[in-house]
Simulated assay, not measured.
Amino acid sequence: MDIQSVGASYIRAGQVLTDRSALSAVSRWTQAVSEADGVCVIHLTPGADPREVTAELRDQGLRASPNHVLRGQPLFFGGPASRPFPTPPIGFKPGRARSDVVIGLLDTGVAKHPWWSGSDWYGNLGPDEADAVEGAQAGHGTFVAGLLTRRAPGSRLRVERVLDGDGIGDEATVVRALNRMRERPPHVLNLSFGCHSFDDHPPPLLADAIAALSDTVTVACAGNTASDRPFWPAALPSAVGVAALDTAEEHRAPYSGYGTWVDACARGDWLASSFLDHGEFAGYAAWSGTSFATALVAGAIADAAREMPAKEAARRLLESDEARQIEDLGVLVPAGL
Rank of each mutant, 00 (worst) to 15 (best):
M1V: 14
S5T: 15
G7I: 07
G14R: 14
G14Q: 13
Q15A: 09
R20A: 14
R20K: 08
A25D: 13
Q31P: 01
A32N: 10
A36W: 00
V41W: 03
H43T: 15
E52Q: 15
V53M: 08
V53K: 09
T54E: 14
D59L: 04
Q60K: 12
L62Q: 06
L62S: 04
P66N: 10
N67S: 08
V69Y: 03
P74N: 08
F76H: 10
P80T: 10
S82C: 14
R96A: 13
R96Q: 13
V101W: 01
I103D: 03
L106T: 10
T108F: 05
P114L: 09
S117Y: 05
S117P: 01
D120I: 15
W121T: 13
D128I: 12
E129W: 03
A132P: 00
A132F: 14
G135Y: 04
T142H: 08
T142S: 14
T142D: 04
G146V: 13
R150D: 04
P153V: 12
S155V: 15
V162M: 03
D164P: 02
G165N: 05
G167I: 12
G169N: 00
A172F: 01
A172Q: 00
T173G: 06
A177C: 05
M181Y: 09
M181L: 15
R182P: 01
P186A: 12
L191A: 13
S192K: 07
L205I: 08
D208A: 13
I210M: 12
D215H: 12
C221F: 01
C221N: 07
G223Q: 07
S227C: 08
W232H: 11
L236N: 08
P237L: 12
A239T: 15
V240S: 11
G241K: 02
A243D: 01
T247D: 06
A248P: 00
G259Q: 06
A264P: 02
A266D: 06
W270C: 08
W270F: 07
L271D: 05
A272F: 02
S273I: 14
S274N: 12
F275P: 04
G279L: 14
E280A: 15
A282I: 02
G289T: 03
S291T: 10
A293Y: 04
T294A: 05
G299P: 00
G299M: 01
A302R: 01
M308G: 03
M308R: 15
A310I: 09
S320P: 03
E322C: 01
A323L: 11
A323M: 10
Q325D: 08
G336F: 05
